[in-house]
Design a protein around this nucleic acid. Structure first.
Lengths: 353, 353
DNA sequence: TTTAGCACTCATTCTTTCCGAGTGCTAATG
DNA sequence: CATTAGCACTCGGAAAGAATGAGTGCTAAA
């Protein structure tokens, strides 16, 4: 699509004014905003042209113009200037991004909250699941005579543990055996490979009259189950109402419903090879998003898996600013995960097991 | 407040009809619903009486009656029959209450979701924080030459762990020393008692040139920080819109905003010595809840701390049903936590450390 | 190619009118 | 004295109508 320079300026003015005011933009307003030295009639002619091209639309015959999805797309691709974060902005971001939490769950919660607060749009954060997780290593710690902790380390370096209390005291040696057995028989297996037979024969090998093996294995299976699922957090649903396009309940409700369903949000992904993605109105697959836009950015979770954070808002969204802030937060998250992988990003050598 | 039998029946009819239809209730409708053998005029007289007592109110002169908060309160205290869960209901509840998650976070997520789905109102779940947590025990596990896991067990029996990677290999004996030192110097301390001096002198005692002590301690402090905070999860915010009283955005928005703030939800507690609590309209402290009602139920988290689950909805809420379902889910949660404390509910003997 | 001028369109807002459910009151009844 | 039939009255809400004005599209002139 090639436009004349003047047409581009008009289009840009329409988009920016509309983003700002949420009201249809008339020829006169354009003249004030852009510094075109032409009359309003000329602008009207251009507007007619742009409308014919499908870049703008008219709510009704005698109203100003509103950007059509195609118009936003053109704007985003070709006209939009990258938003440079101001010093105050980065400061505010840094302050808000006080991520000292450790648990993934809470980190994501916090990230979502920050993004939403910063953009004034509902936000979400999702971690990528690890579909084929296996256990890398088991550890067993004795706590008291009749209680022990099992620590399960999965191959995505996640640690889970559980305290088991027993009806009768236990020998330290028994636990050592248990650990050895678990490490011998159950590491490297995906959830599906945990068969009852396997558990039974392992229990037999241990002479396991207390049922330790099934206990720990059932716990382990829960861990694997949890690890392979994605984690979804949404925040700031209420900020939807700050925007006039969602004043009408019939507009807001489907979107809310959509966002409340984790499965829906899970399906929002950034195309392979990109770090950010903007989906405008009908470019979205899901019906509930057809009148809204989604801006996404990926962050690095270590172990070369990627998580996604994003916001949802009206198509009349301040794409430039949102994108910049989102990227900043994503970067922050990546750093966080990088740090927790501490100094040596060296790959596992498995010297010990 | 003493009412005649007939007044009670009228009041009850008004409340129940209004709960059902969300429309002001007229004298005629009452006659159909309750089996009073009187004329509509008589009912109108009673209505006038009940209105004078402040139990009912009139939206405007020529409309039917609507329960006033006092009316709901009377209904809940004296008139409401306990809702008996039907077989199908319990089945549905059981099915939905598939709580095989382990992490507190997810359990609460799930619980909130279930409650909301079951009641068709927004729901929330909160865990009680442990304000004065201390570490009960440290463990250190060697993973590879240059990586180890620290396991921190707090006195509320929560386990956290973290994988540390190091720039250089480590002796097993060093780690054993580290563990002994940590257990010696840092158990039984609240977060405030972790002073820099303490850390420094401990590091010195270990001859800690790698900075192991500060590393683990900083992690530990995060754990303590996390443990003492409450955890709040909300679910089903969108179900607010299913109810006519929130069709008006100006009604829904403040409530949404309220629920989106974890601090607000945290402050909802059940009075000492009760297991459930119903707060009707203006009985609520917070402004945003003045036109809504809150139903709460506690559940047992083990370690004699209590968590709370609850729902928020219009004052015109089906209190009986909601309460019954909430209690059922709360019970389910209590069981879950009980089980995870496994067979012996025996108290800690700390034979080992 | 641009622009001034002007008739025309159509959402929005404000009034006005109409409707009817439901009341409160009065007077009659057992 | 409690109850009831009857009826005038109230008042919110829906529907219809009128006024407003921003912004357009088109035509004819520069």
């Amino acid at each position: 699509m090639d436009l004349t320079e003047r047409q581009k300026r008009v289009l840009r003015a329409v988009v920016e004014l509309y983003i700002d005011t949420a009201e249809p933009v008339g020829s006169k307003a354009i003249l004030e905003h852009s510094d075109l030295n032409v009359s309003s009639a000329t602008v009207r002619n251009e507007l007619a042209e742009l409308t014919a091209l499908g870049l703008l639309e008219q709510p009704h015959t005698s109203a100003g113009r509103v950007p059509a999805p195609k118009g936003y797309r053109f704007y985003v691709n070709a006209l939009m200037e990258e938003h440079r974060l101001s010093v105050q902005e980065t400061e505010r971001l840094n302050e808000a991004l006080h991520l000292k939490m450790r648990e993934l769950d809470r980190v994501m919660d916090e990230a979502g909250r920050v993004v939403s607060q910063l953009t004034r749009y509902p936000a979400f954060a999702l971690s990528s699941g690890t579909p084929r997780v296996t256990v890398k290593r088991f550890d067993v710690l004795m706590v008291e005579r009749n209680a022990f902790i099992a620590v399960v380390m999965t191959d995505n370096d996640h640690l889970s543990n559980h305290l088991f209390r027993l009806p009768q005291p236990l020998e330290r040696s028994q636990l050592q055996l248990l650990a050895a057995l678990l490490n011998g028989s159950f590491t490297g297996l995906t959830l599906e490979e945990f068969t009852p037979q396997l558990v039974r024969s392992a229990a037999q090998a241990l002479g396991d009259e207390l049922g330790l093996v099934p206990m720990v294995i059932s716990f382990t299976m829960e861990v694997l189950e949890e690890q392979r699922g994605k984690l979804v957090r949404t925040a700031g649903l209420d900020s939807l109402f700050a925007h006039p396009e969602y004043q009408d309940l019939s507009k807001a409700q489907p979107l809310m419903r959509y966002l409340a369903q984790a499965e829906n949000v899970e399906s929002l992904t950034v195309p392979e090879g990109q770090n950010t993605s903007i989906l405008i109105g009908p470019e979205n697959v899901h019906e509930a998003l057809k009148d809204s836009s989604v801006v996404l950015a990926t962050y690095d979770m270590g172990d070369n898996t990627k998580g996604v954070i994003g916001v949802v808002g009206p198509t009349r969204m301040d794409y430039a600013t949102v994108l910049a802030r989102l990227e900043y937060v994503a970067q922050g998250l990546s750093h966080l995960f990088e740090q927790s992988q501490l100094p040596h990003p060296a790959k596992k050598e498995d010297s010990d097991q």
